[in-house]
Computed example of a mutant assay.
Amino acid sequence: MSAAAKKIVVCGGTGFLGSRICRAAVSRGWDVTSLSRSGEPRWESVTSSSSPPVWANQVSWERADIFRPAQYIALLKGADYVVHSMGILLEADYKKVLSGRESPIAGLQRAFSANRESRSSANPLERQAAGEEEQLPPPSSQSQLTYEMMNRDSAILLAKEAAKEHVKAFGYISAAGGAPVLPGRYISTKREAEDVIAREFPSMRGVFFRPPFMYDSSRAFTVPMAAAASAGSVFNTVTGGVLSGFLGAAGAKPLKADLVADAVVEGLDDEHVSGPVEVPQLEELGTKSWRKTML
């Protein structure tokens, strides 16, 4: 690895998109570190094979709890870019839904449950100012994962640590919008995270990527879902976006996960890109990145 190589830390690098962000960064010769509770991915859950791809050998797969900064602050030192790619779709163990161990109906019932644990403050920094501990108490089980904790608070906490280390740019994987089947807090917590990070850490370039529904043939069920989302996008376009508020991300053009990953890396590398990055710009950045690899 060249001494001049840029360094990126991807929190959630074992996920569907996070692993692809690692791949895209490796393709540029960057020094890549992934942070997650599991360390290395279960490859069959993010690719079409149970064996690690060749590029995976060039990633440092580290274990850390995002709610325990002491476990990973040393890994942020010298980083040019830090990415948060850890949000949850359902306030339940949605991975059980994806793997077939829990029915989608049961997952949605748990997501909409009125008994879900919630946090009232939209800014965990305010809790620290009030004298509470800097570290947020992690969930004791998967059933305690909430939108406030995973989509918002974990991102703000990571951004705070990144800013301390003078990281040049912080990438946050947000979303194009909600969806009719998801609670409104799914998207509202993501927007809250964007607002707080932009306001509290102005010296660090915040880039808020807002992908639509993402698909890949390695997850076969995403292909027909992408087709349905594409139909919704076409309908929304020809009707002048009349249903944008209702459809949310389901009304946006779906994108291949690899293209979104390429767009994230390209956007971080371009110092002129900052703030919200919507679907059309994601497509432009992804295409720009792809063309560079063809030269």
Rank of each mutant, 00 (worst) to 15 (best):
R116T: 00
S154F: 07
S103M: 04
Y215F: 15
V83C: 13
G232T: 01
V238S: 03
M86Y: 05
L75R: 15
V181K: 03
G245I: 02
V242R: 13
E132A: 02
L35H: 07
D269A: 15
K292C: 05
A229D: 04
G241M: 03
P139T: 13
P137S: 15
D80G: 00
E283C: 07
V10M: 06
L136I: 12
G15Q: 05
I73N: 14
G248K: 07
R199E: 14
L247T: 04
G15V: 01
I173V: 10
E44C: 02
R68I: 15
G15W: 04
A261D: 08
G240Q: 08
E266Y: 14
S233P: 03
V265W: 11
P53E: 10
A74H: 15
R63W: 10
K168A: 13
S289P: 03
S49T: 05
L247A: 09
S120C: 01
F201N: 08
S217T: 09
G13I: 01
N123S: 01
D270K: 14
G171D: 05
H166S: 12
Q281V: 05
R101A: 10
L125M: 04
T287A: 12
I66L: 15
N151Q: 14
F16L: 07
Y186E: 01
R119A: 00
A220Q: 12
V273L: 07
A229N: 09
E126C: 02
F170Y: 13
G18S: 05
P183A: 11
D195H: 08
V265Q: 12
T33W: 04
A106D: 11
S230H: 10
Q144A: 15
G18W: 03
A74M: 12
N115D: 08
H166N: 13
P280I: 09
V54H: 06
E126N: 08
R210H: 11
E266K: 15
I88P: 01
F201H: 05
A3C: 04
E91G: 03
N123E: 00
P138G: 10
K164N: 11
D153T: 09
W61T: 04
S38C: 10
D216Y: 09
A176E: 02
Q58K: 10
L136K: 09
E161P: 00
F208H: 11
E91V: 03
G286H: 06
A249W: 09
P280R: 06
N236R: 02
N57S: 13
A162Q: 11
S118D: 00
L182R: 09
A163H: 10
K7R: 14
P104H: 03
A250D: 11
V167N: 08
L108Y: 03
E165I: 01
K160R: 12
S50H: 06
P254V: 02
S118N: 00
S85V: 04
L98S: 08
Q109F: 08
R127P: 00
S113F: 04
A226W: 10
W61A: 09
K168G: 04
P69H: 14
G177M: 06
S113Y: 05
P202T: 06
A220S: 12
G241N: 02
A122P: 01
A169P: 00
D31M: 10
V265A: 08
P138N: 14
P276H: 07
A169F: 02
D65N: 15
A227S: 04
P69V: 13
R20N: 02
